[in-house]
Simulated assay, not measured.
Amino acid sequence: MIRINLIPYRTARRQHQIIQHLGTFVAVVIAAALLALGAHTYSSLQLADLKEQTLQLQQQNQDLKQKIGKIENLDHLRTDVERKLKIVDRLQEGRFHSLKTLHEISLLIPENVWLDEINDQGKDLVLSGQAESNKAVAVFMRKLDQSALFENIRLDLINRVMIGGLPVRKFSLKVVRRDDAAVAAGQAEGS
């Protein structure tokens, strides 16, 4: 019987299988390394994009904060302007209020009564002057009382004094000025 020695063939075959297995192992390791490198590169790119978006959002946030600051400043300016306009309106109203008051007093004052001083104390007026007689002061007080612009007329002082050798009465009246709504209501009732 012929004997064939298969040992070198088996050894060669094993070496060939070992080389194949090593090649496959190296290929798998290289493929895994390439996949890991690709995944790392992809996540690095995503991280860079996210950092760029974060910087853009932070810049937008800064811009919005500046705009909000400007809006708050505008709100402050608007309230300041409104406050100043109210002051101007109140002053304008007071100017005409004083004008109306003086006009009304000039219409009501009798010929034999002279005013020396009108002291405005807000709602109260103090009228000081001279009159020919007590009766002239009483007539003046009655006219003030009948006016829609005044109320609570009170005689604080009346003295007899000599001026230029003539006897006159020096007087001081306290008058309360009605507000514009009460004056308008009184004028509406009188119409």
Score class of each variant (00 low, 15 high):
residue 15 Q to P: 01
residue 18 I to V: 14
residue 19 I to H: 00
residue 19 I to R: 04
residue 20 Q to K: 05
residue 25 F to Y: 13
residue 25 F to R: 14
residue 27 A to H: 00
residue 28 V to F: 07
residue 29 V to W: 08
residue 31 A to G: 02
residue 34 L to P: 01
residue 35 L to P: 00
residue 38 G to Q: 06
residue 42 Y to N: 12
residue 43 S to D: 10
residue 43 S to R: 15
residue 48 A to Q: 11
residue 50 L to D: 14
residue 51 K to R: 05
residue 52 E to W: 07
residue 55 L to K: 03
residue 56 Q to A: 13
residue 58 Q to S: 10
residue 59 Q to W: 05
residue 63 D to G: 01
residue 69 G to I: 05
residue 71 I to R: 05
residue 72 E to Q: 04
residue 72 E to Y: 07
residue 73 N to K: 09
residue 77 L to W: 10
residue 82 E to R: 05
residue 82 E to Q: 12
residue 83 R to W: 06
residue 84 K to W: 07
residue 87 I to V: 07
residue 89 D to H: 14
residue 90 R to V: 10
residue 91 L to C: 01
residue 92 Q to K: 09
residue 93 E to G: 09
residue 93 E to P: 07
residue 94 G to N: 06
residue 95 R to Y: 13
residue 96 F to C: 08
residue 98 S to K: 03
residue 102 L to Q: 07
residue 103 H to D: 11
residue 104 E to K: 02
residue 107 L to R: 06
residue 107 L to A: 11
residue 109 I to F: 02
residue 110 P to E: 00
residue 111 E to V: 12
residue 114 W to D: 08
residue 115 L to Q: 04
residue 115 L to G: 06
residue 117 E to P: 06
residue 119 N to W: 11
residue 120 D to F: 14
residue 123 K to E: 15
residue 124 D to S: 14
residue 127 L to Y: 02
residue 130 Q to E: 14
residue 133 S to H: 00
residue 133 S to C: 07
residue 134 N to V: 08
residue 138 A to W: 05
residue 139 V to R: 06
residue 140 F to S: 02
residue 141 M to P: 01
residue 143 K to Q: 14
residue 144 L to Q: 04
residue 144 L to Y: 00
residue 145 D to C: 08
residue 146 Q to H: 14
residue 147 S to D: 01
residue 152 N to G: 13
residue 154 R to I: 05
residue 156 D to E: 13
residue 157 L to G: 04
residue 159 N to M: 11
residue 159 N to C: 01
